[in-house]
Amino acid sequence: MFSFSRGKMKLTHEEVKKIARLARLQLTEADLEKYATQLSAVLSYIERLNQLDTANIEPTAHAFLVPTPFREDKVKPYTEQELSLQNAPDREGPFFKVPKVIA
């Protein structure tokens, strides 16, 4: 159980770059190689799932099957926005401030 094959799955630098871009992370060339190797190892390990026949199996999203509860449509006033604004790296009055968004 504790031995596992390091499979052939190997991510390219291009793929790693693409994932990083989607996740808004910036990787150096050295990072690319490191992540490519490490993620490939995990993905190879994960490949063992393919041995499993799941043709007629329902997916489980949650451990229990109850419907989502509802909330009544009633306003609950909240007045402590200032506590949140105080955590902002940059603010102006009641606004969160960011570098110009190019629309």
């Binding site: 991510l11 994932i19 992370l25 993905l43 799941t54 329902e58 997916p59």
Partner: peptide, 28 residues
Amino acid sequence: RRIMLGTYVLSAGYYDAYYLKAQKARTL
């Protein structure tokens, strides 16, 4: 590392092979 892995398994074309497959295995 985990954000990268998670982003990868959800990305276009891989969802069924990874995420959905894993949810089914979770059932088992």
